[in-house]
């Protein structure tokens, strides 16, 4: 890959991301959403975050895989149920996975 290609990707990805992130706030900023749309976006966080959890845990390129990451996620889930703080959750997830990989 040429260095020029990298800079073109950096530039275009940057411009596209600024546009995608800015679209809503730039066009609709400060204006109340209609109640029905508000009810919809209220469920956006649980829907997207759950999707991120499962794709980060089970996604492996173009297929699904159950691997050492599941052990880390399970350890985090146990810590979550035990009401451990966020840092503890992250601190148990990573070593649990790393440990399983070494086995």
């Amino acid at each position: 890959m040429s260095g020029g290609e990298a800079w073109v990707v950096v530039g275009l990805a940057g411009v596209a991301t600024v546009a995608l992130k800015g679209l809503g706030p730039a066009l609709l900023g400060g204006r109340a959403l209609p109640p029905r749309l508000l009810a919809v976006v209220g469920l956006l966080a649980p829907a997207l975050l759950a999707a991120l959890v499962v794709t980060q845990a089970f996604g492996a390129g173009d297929h699904l895989a159950v691997d050492a990451r599941v052990v880390g996620l399970a350890a985090a889930a146990v810590a979550l149920v035990a009401r451990a703080p966020a840092l503890v959750l992250l601190a148990v997830a990573a070593p649990a996975t790393a440990h399983v990989r070494m086995l």
């Binding site: 975050l49 991120l52 959890v53 499962v54 980060q56 845990a57 050492a68 990451r69 052990v71 880390g72 996620l73 350890a75 985090a76 889930a77 979550l80 966020a86 959750l89 992250l90 148990v92 997830a93 990573a94 070593p95 649990a96 996975t97 790393a98 440990h99 990989r101």
Partner: peptide, 14 residues
């Protein structure tokens, strides 16, 4: 290699 990829599903779970 420290298992950071497992921290991310945990982070989103948090």
């Amino acid at each position: 290699r420290l298992g950071l990829d497992a921290a991310f599903p945990a982070l989103f779970l948090v």
